[in-house]
């Protein structure tokens, strides 16, 4: 079964979270209303559409792209995306000869302000263990065949840097505006387990 479809949820995770929340509230460690605000932010405002806007802008604006590659944190913040798990951003660019893919082998570090919360498979032991050992086989399971003459770079976000992949701009999008381009930038293309969508797909 392909990694992306694998069910790796631990059982009763919802119950466990509920129990933890009640306990923390009873001990006076949290105001449950503060958690509601966090959940609402991640349900309505913070997700991969933010990252897609960053990538689309970089595709159409060479000056912005230069800034983004040099100081990812500042360039991303200028579009309004900053904060927890995006304090130190690094953008890595795919080219015809280099394909980048991101993992956190130690846990599940992920750039929240630009991509939201990580998908289940990103946190799963099989993805984390295998993508560093056999990245080409793992990418094949995501439907990506990497040519033998393309270098695969696996970025293990073991410290405080958070990585965002800039996928290649698809062919046939020369007349697309920023908003149209952003529609083509998928979450997986910014992790490196996918490509930007071809127009019309």
């Amino acid at each position: 079964m392909a990694l992306a479809q694998e069910n790796v949820l631990i059982p009763d995770v919802g119950l466990r979270v509920k129990a933890l929340e009640s306990l923390l509230a009873e001990k006076g460690a949290i105001d449950p209303k503060s958690l509601d605000l966090l959940v609402e932010a991640f349900e309505t405002r913070i997700g991969p559409k933010n990252g897609a806007k960053v990538i689309a802008k970089a595709w159409v604006d060479p000056e912005y792209k230069k800034w983004l590659m040099k100081d990812g944190t500042a360039a991303i913040k200028s579009l309004g995306y900053s904060g927890v798990q995006g304090e130190n951003m690094v953008v890595i660019e795919n080219t015809p000869t280099v394909h980048n893919v991101v993992v956190c082998t130690l846990c599940s570090c992920y750039p929240w302000p630009t991509l939201g919360l990580p998908p289940i498979w990103f946190k799963s032991a099989p993805y984390r263990a295998r993508v560093v050992i056999e990245p080409r086989a793992v990418l094949r399971e995501f439907g990506l065949e990497i040519a033998d003459d393309v270098e695969v770079r696996v970025w293990d976000s073991t410290a405080e840097l958070r990585y965002l992949v800039m996928p290649m701009r698809p062919a046939g999008t020369e007349n697309f505006n920023e908003a149209q381009l952003a529609e083509l930038v998928t979450r997986d293309s910014m992790i490196g387990t996918g490509l930007a969508l071809a127009p019309g797909k």
């Binding site: 105001d31 932010a41 927890v84 995006g86």
Partner: peptide
């Protein structure tokens, strides 16, 4: 205690290391 007032700050600035 984690409070409602902290949330906008956490979301906007995070916890820089």
């Amino acid at each position: 205690k984690v409070t409602v007032e902290m949330m906008p700050i956490v979301l906007a600035t995070g916890d820089p290391a």
